[in-house]
Computed example of a mutant assay.
Amino acid sequence: MQSILRFTQITACGLLVVLPVQGRAAPQAAGSAAPSQQVAHGVALYKQRCGACHNTPSRSLDEAPLLAGPAFAQKWLARPAALFQKIRYSMPQDNPGTLSDEEAQALVAALASGYISGKAPAK
């Protein structure tokens, strides 16, 4: 148990360094709004693995909250390491822990980019 806790702490600390860099879209030419490769991968994963629950208005917000808006940003985007942990180890809810580290990082990057919430940079 102690080794698992230590691994989680090390992973979280590492993500604090890695995610802010990877979580931003790569610099783009002026007027360009193309997402980085990691963000594009995250958007595709979201559509494939997350959107069925998180974009379904008939579901309870407690069951599968929208992954956008000020409340989401304050709770999760301000803490990318915590968001990574939540995604990596407890999502998707019907099959938790099946996303790889790379997939969870791509999802965090995509959520932070605004491409999922529709607030991506305008062309």
Results as ranks from 00 to 15, higher is better:
Cys13Asn: 15
Gly51Arg: 00
Leu66His: 09
Gln38Thr: 12
Ala120Asp: 01
Ser60Gly: 12
Lys119Glu: 14
Ala82Val: 12
Ile10Val: 15
Thr11His: 10
Asp62Arg: 11
Gln22Lys: 13
Met1Arg: 12
Ser90Ala: 14
Gln38Cys: 09
Asn55Gln: 12
Leu107Phe: 09
Gly51Asn: 03
Gln85Val: 13
Pro65Ile: 10
Gly42His: 05
Thr11Val: 14
Lys86Glu: 10
Ala44Lys: 06
Asp101Cys: 12
Ala52Phe: 13
Pro92Cys: 08
Asn55Lys: 06
Arg24Trp: 04
Ala12Met: 14
Leu111Asn: 08
Ser36Val: 04
Gln85Phe: 14
Pro57Asp: 10
Cys50Ile: 06
Ala33Arg: 08
Val21Trp: 12
Met1Tyr: 11
Phe7Lys: 14
Ser58Arg: 13
Val17His: 07
Pro96Trp: 03
Pro65Tyr: 08
Tyr46His: 11
Ser113Met: 04
Ala52Lys: 13
Pro96Ser: 07
Ala109Leu: 07
Arg24Ile: 02
Ala104Lys: 02
Asn95Ser: 08
Ala112Trp: 07
Ala68Trp: 07
Pro70Ser: 12
Ala25Arg: 09
Gln9Ile: 11
Asn55Ala: 10
Ala78Trp: 10
Arg79Ile: 00
Val108Cys: 02
Met1His: 13
Arg49Asp: 00
Ala25Thr: 13
Ser32Met: 06
Gly118Tyr: 01
Lys47Pro: 00
Ala120Lys: 02
Leu83Asp: 02
Arg59Pro: 01
Pro20Gly: 03
Tyr89Gly: 11
Cys50Leu: 06
Arg49Pro: 04
Ala122Cys: 07
Gly23Val: 07
Asp94Ala: 09
Ala78Pro: 00
Gln28Lys: 11
Pro27Asp: 02
Ala110Thr: 01
Ala64Ser: 11
Phe84Asn: 02
Trp76Gly: 14
Ala26Ile: 04
Ala110Ile: 05
Gln74Trp: 10
Pro92Lys: 01
Ala30Val: 15
Ala71His: 06
Gln28Cys: 12
Gly69Leu: 02
Pro92His: 06
Val18Pro: 02
Tyr46Asp: 06
Gly51Asp: 05
Leu16Thr: 15
Leu15Ala: 13
Gly14His: 04
Leu77Trp: 05
Tyr89Val: 14
Ala109His: 03
Gly23Ala: 09
Gly23Tyr: 08
Cys50Ser: 05
Ala73Ser: 15
Val43Asp: 00
Gln9Phe: 13
Pro121Gln: 15
Ala78Leu: 15
Val18Glu: 08
Met1Lys: 14
Val108Thr: 03
Thr56Arg: 13
Ala40Asn: 04
Glu63Asn: 08
Ala33Cys: 11
Arg88Phe: 09
Cys13Phe: 07
